[in-house]
Write a protein that binds this DNA or RNA. Structure first.
Length: 780
DNA sequence: GGCCGGGGCATTTTT
DNA sequence: TGCCCCGGCC
């Protein structure tokens, strides 16, 4: 057993070892929170809590995966894989699939993503003949979402005076009707949206005490990370589930609560003690990440907020440099200054580009930074924007998958019924929808028997609809017989999507082909992984369940290339860099113009700034521009009030004099038009592959390093990865696996088709492979 | 039924 | 400015 306990400081140790009542661990920025969580789980595992009795809830899938890996290193990956670790949504979707029938869903229910729900809401607004300018789908979606997050069902919504009044006031009194209809339609489609996963879990636990009892008995210890960003629905789930024993460990930092705009409630952490009797509070206050100056600066900033849990975050690292605030004449110059500063700091400290981050409040700010870095040949990677699964061509294919698994999935049918074009246009689709609504059945039911539901279409259209139905039915028939990969291939080929994509070689089509190839190779990998692990869950159902919630922030592990990171501050939560640039510190941008309505939202902006600063280990640079091009016009802006919130002992603000000098000095050479021209000519050049993060396909699947598509691999890698028999291998044999890299065989078990080997990989941990499928090279 | 162009509109986002 | 959506036209 690893003596990991002694790697902890005193307060970390206390937090890890307290396990006989609820606890709240207030973890200051950079205080080793993940280490505490990891070791606590390892400790529990080694002290009488079997893995399947521990539930550990994280904020993102990526966080769950990383923590599982770390725990696997201590207790072994097999043990770690039995933990119930994941996001609220993924863990409870698993439970809901098991218990679906109790709630009137099937276990293969679809999960609607936010685009699906918005599109459905839009449909409903149209159906109700409401003015779409007044009833904006996104606004209505937001209201419904926050209702669900507060566990308000449609019935409760209509009966709630405050909500109804607030809707009246906002001149959208019929939200309650939309909500009601939305819920009915989701149910009919056998679909849950993201919020439903939490709402329905609560309903399940409320209405089926025996089910609640079952899970209470199973989960004897519950850990929740990032508690400051949980909403009411999540909080109540934790409370319900831990009702029997109260062994909950919540970890978080109220100073880093930045997601209230999507329902997170900071009161969950502020009032935690009240909700969990006997709760012990632990504070992790030593920051191991940043210099004293950065920690002090951040502390002085957050002190301006009223509501918070008192704590004293400190650093014992070197004193460090002051935070530097830089004034720029324009947003263009801001970019230039940041780029110069990066070059400059890199020369002085020999830091890798990976140790640099540019953080901004809004994604729109990334473009100008991008241009500036490109001019200086500084490699970068932009996070955010369209994720792999949001690309149209991927959504199309996935929509086919969804219909195959759940033909009642209305949103998916709407998406693919005429893609590729089969002559089924809006008119027909509207007739279909009307007919389905009239009869209270799904679109698919109407498609199956148009005559019975008296669908008013002519024979030509009827024929086209039948064609579509038969296509889908043929896939449904294939479903039980095929692996996800086989079926996916068949979908892409037989549906005509492929033909359409290869019709001509426009750049758009080429990129689509690339993405589809990437999807296919991801599915292939999914199947191979499962097979090698000896699992037979390789059907499309399993693949779809796997990806429905993996919307992916985890863009592959290609850390191989050094790049500057560019992302929003929200996306930077939990990360750290030696050098951090926070750009656009201007009134109405940061703090955002929307945040000024209430003290509460202004405090959240301040916490956001706190998160930004505390990402920095050594150097923190803040920039602001006097003029900025925004929403199609140039606006003058004044420096952010937040700059004055930092104690002047810890920050170098540009003096007015220097500011004037700067303006004079650079005004001619860096005025907008000069930059504008050069920027244009630059853009017309094709983007260099290595600098263009977004054009490089990344494998969004699985936890394994990405690799070329299977077809390509066969051609380029020489094809010498192959399967091997038991006789070729003994303990200690060195192998090189197609995906996991180099490793050593630890042991063997089983015979024939069941023969497996356990391998310790240098970079991929310990894995069990099924010899029948595993492809590798024997090295000695 | 599909394509093009003009008008309106611009946070943060993971699930 | 750039994207999205709708309406008009082919």
């Amino acid at each position: 057993m690893v003596d990991f306990i002694n790697e902890l400081n005193e307060s970390q140790k206390r937090a890890v070892l307290h396990n006989d009542s609820a606890s709240l661990v207030i973890a200051g920025a950079g205080s080793g929170k993940t280490r505490v969580l990891t070791y606590k789980i390892a400790w529990l595992l080694q002290n009488g809590f079997p893995a399947y009795t521990i539930m550990s809830l994280t904020f993102t899938n990526k966080a769950a995966r990383e923590m599982k890996d770390r725990i696997g290193k201590i207790v072994g990956p097999r043990e770690a894989s039995r933990l119930w670790m994941g996001t609220f949504h993924s863990i409870f979707s698993k439970i809901l699939r098991r218990e679906a029938t109790a709630l009137g869903y099937s276990s293969n229910f679809t999960i609607y993503d936010s685009a699906d729900s918005r599109s459905l809401i839009k449909d409903i607004i149209k159906e109700l003949k409401l003015d779409e300018k007044i009833y904006k789908a996104s606004t209505v979606q937001g209201r419904i979402s926050s209702a669900k997050n507060s566990l308000v069902t449609p019935g409760m919504y209509a009966a709630n005076k405050d909500l109804v009044e607030s809707d009246m006031f906002a001149k959208i009194p019929l939200v309650r009707d939309i909500y009601k209809r939305y819920a009915t339609r989701c149910k009919q489609a056998d679909a849950m949206d993201f919020d439903d996963l939490l709402l329905n879990t609560n309903i399940l636990f409320r209405d089926f005490p025996n089910v609640l009892e079952k899970y209470r008995a199973q989960f004897r210890f519950i850990l929740v990370d990032e508690y400051q960003d949980t909403n009411f629905a999540q909080h109540l789930i934790v409370k319900q589930l831990s009702g029997g024993h109260g062994l909950v460990c919540a970890v978080g930092d109220d100073a880093q609560s930045i997601y209230s705009f999507r329902g997170a409630n900071i009161d969950n952490i502020l009032g935690f003690k009240k909700n969990f009797p006997g709760c012990q509070i632990f504070k992790l206050e030593q920051n191991y990440r940043s210099t004293q100056n950065i920690v002090d600066a951040a502390n002085s900033l957050i002190k301006k907020n009223k509501e918070q849990i008192p704590k004293n975050v400190f650093s014992e690292k070197e004193k460090g440099e002051k935070i530097q605030a830089i004034s720029a004449y324009s947003d263009f110059e801001e970019g230039y200054l940041v780029a110069s500063k990066i070059t400059d700091l890199r020369m002085r400290h020999h830091d890798s580009y990976n140790q640099f981050a540019i953080l901004y409040r809004t994604n729109a700010q990334s473009r100008i930074m991008e241009e500036a870095l490109r001019k200086r040949n500084i490699p970068y990677r932009i996070y955010g924007g369209l994720s792999f699964y949001q690309r149209a061509e991927i959504k199309d294919v996935v929509a086919y998958f969804r219909v195959i698994i759940n033909p009642n999935d209305e949103e998916a049918i709407k998406r693919i019924i005429n893609r590729p074009a089969r002559g089924i246009g809006d008119t027909t689709i509207n007739k279909l929808k009307e007919c389905a609504n009239l009869n209270n059945v799904s679109l698919w039911s109407v498609l199956q028997d148009p005559l019975r539901f008296a669908l008013p279409v002519n024979s030509g259209t009827a024929k086209k609809l039948t064609g579509f139905r038969e296509l889908m039915e043929s896939y449904i028939e294939e479903l039980p017989k095929s692996t996800a990969y086989q079926l996916a291939e068949s979908v892409i080929k037989k549906s005509g999507l492929m033909t359409e994509m290869y019709a001509d070689r426009t750049p758009e089509n080429l990129s689509k082909q690339e993405n589809i190839q990437e999807l296919l190779s991801g599915i292939h990998e999914f199947c191979e992984n499962k097979q090698e692990e000896g699992s037979d869950e390789i059907g499309l159902v399993h693949f779809l369940a796997d990806i429905s919630l993996a919307t992916d922030q985890d863009t592959g592990n290609d850390e191989d290339q050094e790049r500057v990171t560019m992302m929003t501050i929200h996306a930077a939560k939990g990360l750290e860099f030696n050098n951090v640039f926070v750009v656009g510190l201007e009134e109405d941008l940061f703090p955002s113009q929307w945040a000024k309505e209430s003290e509460r939202s202004l405090e959240e902006e301040r916490r956001l700034f706190y998160v930004a600063i505390t990402r920095a280990g050594v150097n923190c640079v803040l920039t602001f521009a006097k003029s900025r091009f925004r929403n199609g016009k140039t606006d003058m802006s004044s420096p952010s009030r937040f700059l004055n919130d930092i104690d002047s002992r810890f920050i170098d603000l540009p003096s007015e004099n220097r500011l004037v000098d700067q303006v004079k000095e650079r005004a001619q050479s860096f005025n907008r038009s000069a930059f504008g021209e050069r920027a244009t000519s630059f853009q017309s050049k094709p983007a260099t592959q290595s600098f263009n993060a977004s054009s490089k396909p990344v494998n969004p699947f699985a936890n394994t390093p990405s690799r070329p598509a299977p077809t390509a691999a066969a051609n380029t890698s020489g094809g010498n990865f192959s399967t091997h028999s038991v006789s070729e291998i003994s303990d200690g044999t060195s192998i090189r696996h197609e995906r996991f890299g180099n490793g050593t065989v630890l042991s063997q078990e089983g015979n024939g088709d069941e023969a497996k080997i356990k391998v310790q990989f240098d970079h991929s941990g310990e894995r069990t492979l099924l010899l029948k499928y595993a492809k590798f090279i024997i090295e000695n």
